[in-house]
């Protein structure tokens, strides 16, 4: 990335301080201000503003090409941000500020930040050469360097939690799409993330397999996990989300509670979109 444009990033004093839950000031888990992203001449994100509190479940809705997935990928720095400021738990994504200058993080530092953010992909992206159990244990063993016995126990418990206790030794190719996606969720959870990102987690699944995956996600939300979910599952958004943000043309057109956005949308574009998908 070139230098951040427009000087949009400014660090308030003490902004990076992590305030414990229940403290007087609550640092948002995700805070986006005017986030911009461009591919060549095409601007995909043109100023996204969004705040997600710890423990909140936020669903991103919008037509394809509206920038939902791109924004999600920016949150864990799979894409670099071209402008604006994007913070996770108070810390700038991909940069560190010293004085009034921004420094790009080294790959190792980026990796360290990502450990705390789980991500679930549309195409699962399980490691095909590893069994379900090895998929889950790989990162805790190699990245966190935790003891093997402990990691294995936690992984088995996670498999149990996603309803796949009997599939520990199966390779991804031997699992259905829905089972693969549940292993992928367990893999992300094994790192004990403070934020979970879901990029259209059910879009590549056969309809009858969607329910199991949503069930696991519902359970996560009930346990208080902070979740940012790009989805087309309106039922899930209405039932589980604390907030829903509708994106169009690289901007958040409107956001609020599911009732506000999905039942009584104020904006014309939201209405047009909902009339097509509902």
């Amino acid at each position: 990335m070139s230098e951040p444009k427009g000087g949009a990033v400014s660090e308030p004093k003490g902004g990076a301080v992590n305030v414990p839950k229940g403290g007087a000031v609550s640092v948002p888990m995700v805070s986006a201000e005017g986030v911009r992203k461009r591919y060549g001449g095409h601007e995909v994100l043109c100023g996204v503003d969004l705040r997600i509190a710890p423990g909140e479940v936020c669903c991103l809705l919008g037509p394809s090409g509206s920038g939902k997935s791109t924004f999600l990928r920016c949150v864990n720095h799979l894409e670099t941000v071209d402008g604006g400021s994007l913070r996770v738990d108070g810390a700038l994504v991909g940069y560190v500020q010293r004085g009034d200058r921004l420094f790009e993080l080294r790959p190792r530092e980026v990796a360290a930040r990502r450990r705390e953010i789980g991500m679930v992909f549309q195409r699962f992206n399980l490691f095909p050469h590893l069994t379900a159990l090895q998929n889950i244990t790989e990162a805790p063993l190699r990245v966190l360097r935790e003891p093997a016995g402990e990691v294995r126990e936690r992984a088995l418990a996670l498999l149990e939690r996603v309803g796949l206790a009997d599939k520990a030794a199966a390779f991804p190719a031997q699992l259905s799409g829905g089972q693969q996606q549940r292993v992928a969720i367990a893999r992300a959870l094994a790192m004990r993330p403070k934020l979970m990102l879901f990029d259209e987690p059910t879009s590549a699944l056969d309809p009858e397999l969607v329910g199991d995956v949503l069930e696991v996600m519902r359970g996560l939300a009930a346990d208080g996990m902070t979740m940012l979910v790009v989805t087309h599952e309106m039922g899930f958004a209405r039932e589980v989300a604390d907030t829903v943000a509708f994106l169009d043309g690289g901007r958040v057109v409107e956001s609020g509670s599911p009732d506000e956005v999905l039942v009584n949308p104020r904006h014309e574009r939201t209405r047009a979109f909902l009339s097509k998908v509902l």
Binding site: N76, L78, P107, R108, A111, A112, R113, R114, R115, E116, I117, G118, M119, F121, R123, N125, L126, F127, E138, A139, R142, V143, A184, R187, A188, M191
Partner: peptide, 14 residues
Amino acid sequence: RGQTEAAHALGMSP
């Protein structure tokens, strides 16, 4: 490419 992205998302270094 999704394999690299998944590994990076888990905090694995390049």
